[in-house]
């Protein structure tokens, strides 16, 4: 269990897991939509990248590692784009942006 490869894999996965936990906490605590979009969009992208990178290190040089790399690259493009589309729709629908001192939604 304590050979260097599995230590690197465990470290990467635990770091990815940390970002995966911080994302939803930000999604719940933050006052309005635009701040929540920051929390969920960014934490998800980095969290999945770290966890899948850990799996690539665990997998080594096989065809599955290439699939995982494709998944990471696709999610790197997908997550920010999807979050941008949602926030753009919210901006057009004139969602109220929270200002300090106001009541949170």
């Amino acid at each position: 269990m304590f050979d260097p490869v599995s230590i690197v894999v465990a470290a990467l996965i635990i770091m990815g897991l940390f970002f995966m936990i911080v994302g939803p906490i930000g999604l719940i605590r933050l006052p309005d939509l635009f701040t929540r979009a920051h929390a969920s969009g960014k934490c998800d992208t980095l969290g999945q990248a770290l966890i899948l990178l850990g799996l690539i290190v665990y997998e080594g040089f096989t065809f599955d590692a290439v699939k995982l790399l494709l998944l990471i690259i696709f999610l790197y493009i997908m997550s920010p784009t999807a979050t941008h589309a949602i926030v753009r729709a919210a901006h057009i629908l004139k969602y109220h942006a929270w200002k300090p001192g106001e009541e949170r939604e």
């Binding site: 939803p24 999604l27 969920s40 998800d44 899948l52 949602i86 919210a90």
Partner: peptide, 27 residues
């Protein structure tokens, strides 16, 4: 995230939470 899907004031809040759940399901 499901908490935000249920509570979320508007459709866009729910959509962001649903997108987050989707990414987690991929993992």
């Amino acid at each position: 995230c499901l908490f935000r899907v249920i509570i979320g004031p508007g459709a866009c809040n729910r959509l962001i939470a649903a997108n987050t759940i989707g990414t987690k399901i991929i993992l």
